[in-house]
Amino acid sequence: MNDKKRLMRQIQVFSFAVYEAALYLDGHPNDKKAMEYYNKYSDKLAELTEKYEHSFGPLTIKGNKGHAWKWTESAWPWEYSCD
């Protein structure tokens, strides 16, 4: 598995964890442990997303900020590349 796929996989793992924690917090807004977990994984996710976008281009529209509208330059999701 190359760097891009490995990084993408990690981003998927962390963003899933973040969403799970967010749903839990919706029902338990004052839970401190849950809040710590959410913060920790949000930070990790931001870091990895930044790293990915630096090397491979924007993942979401937010990744286009400050540059040209770059994400049209790489393959659209349905345009698979063999790698």
Partner: peptide
């Protein structure tokens, strides 16, 4: 009432479909 307990590792969580 659900408690915050027995949290899977994030990688395991994605495989199982839940971190709980």
């Amino acid at each position: 009432h659900q408690e915050w307990e027995n949290i899977y590792d994030a990688e395991v969580g994605l495989e199982r479909g839940t971190i709980f």
